[in-house]
Amino acid sequence: MKRIVAAVIAIFLLGVFMLIAVQLPFGRPSYSDMDDYFLRHGQEETGANNICTAVVFDYRGFDTLGEASVLFSAVVTTGLIFRRLERGD
């Protein structure tokens, strides 16, 4: 009985999620001025041939700082959890 209920709930949830996923407008808006600006002015403004890196480290540098902070806090948390199990060093 439990298994049947679980299966029904799983199928229901799968259907709901699939319904939502199908209705999502994917790839729209297909054109935005931001892409065009990065492609046209990225090289002369940042001097980087790799526009992805130019966006990540120059235009959106603040987000990258947050990303680095996430890694830092992950390491600090790991050290906090495992601190009693190490000896010396």
């Binding site: 940042t46 001097g47 980087a48 890196t53 990258t64 680095a68």
Partner: peptide, 13 residues
């Protein structure tokens, strides 16, 4: 030797 601070930040990260 291009891209300004981007290589420095790449190295740091």
């Amino acid at each position: 030797y291009t891209a300004g601070v981007i290589p420095v930040m790449n190295l740091a990260v």
